[in-house]
């Protein structure tokens, strides 16, 4: 992938992440900040440490990316942020576990689908997420299992990530998109046409 192709891909994903932020703001009645995305090739071995500490416990949702390209789409939240998100989305002071899980999955579903539909519109490729699944575990274990168990990838992967921060929260959530196979080159190629 050349510099200009990489730049076009970054622009398209940035728009997608920005759109995801916009729909998040519609779902949550407080200020939500979505940072400028960071896109870079990462050694597969380093991906479990994307959050800094592989051992950090997170609440995560995971969707496979399917269609003309394959990949991984994950949202990783600090447990406190996840609880607050569930409270804000449901409007309940103390939603039960099932309701919380459903709310967090719904947030990921809406935001994640928005990212992929922007990419799909820009490239003409069919790109759809599977329904998100929620897990609470060590960030490293989730990311490592994602990479090796579901769709083995090569030595490096192009990882795009952005921070999602709720007003008044120190901890930030992370939205991560990792195309696999020839996904990155196919996206870049289509964006160049």
């Amino acid at each position: 992938m050349g510099v200009s192709e990489g730049s076009r891909l970054y622009d398209a994903i940035s728009i997608g992440f920005g759109e995801a932020g916009r729909v998040l703001r519609l779902m949550v009645p407080i200020e939500v900040t979505v940072s400028t995305p960071e896109m870079k090739p990462v050694r597969i071995e380093d991906i479990p440490c994307l959050l800094g500490s592989a051992e950090k416990t997170v609440v995560a949702t995971y969707s496979r990316v399917r269609g003309d390209i394959s990949g991984h789409l994950a949202f990783l939240y600090d447990p406190g942020t996840a609880r607050r998100l569930a409270t804000l989305v449901t409007g309940e002071a103390e939603p039960d576990d099932e309701m919380s899980a459903s709310a967090i999955c719904e947030v990921s579903n809406v935001a994640g689908s928005r990212v992929l539909s922007v990419l799909s519109d820009a490239t003409g490729l069919r790109i759809v997420p599977t329904a998100p699944v929620l897990v609470s575990d060590m960030a490293g274990a989730i990311l490592q299992s994602t990479l090796y168990d579901l769709a083995p990838v090569g030595k490096d992967a192009v990882v795009t990530k952005t921070e999602i921060r709720l007003a008044g929260e120190d901890a930030a959530g992370l939205m991560v998109l990792i195309p696999t196979g020839d996904g990155v080159s196919l996206l870049a190629e289509r964006l160049g046409n």
Partner: peptide
Amino acid sequence: GARILGLAGTPNGPGIG
């Protein structure tokens, strides 16, 4: 050797774990 995302509509057959 776990299957962390065991409910995620994973491919058929035993997982990598």
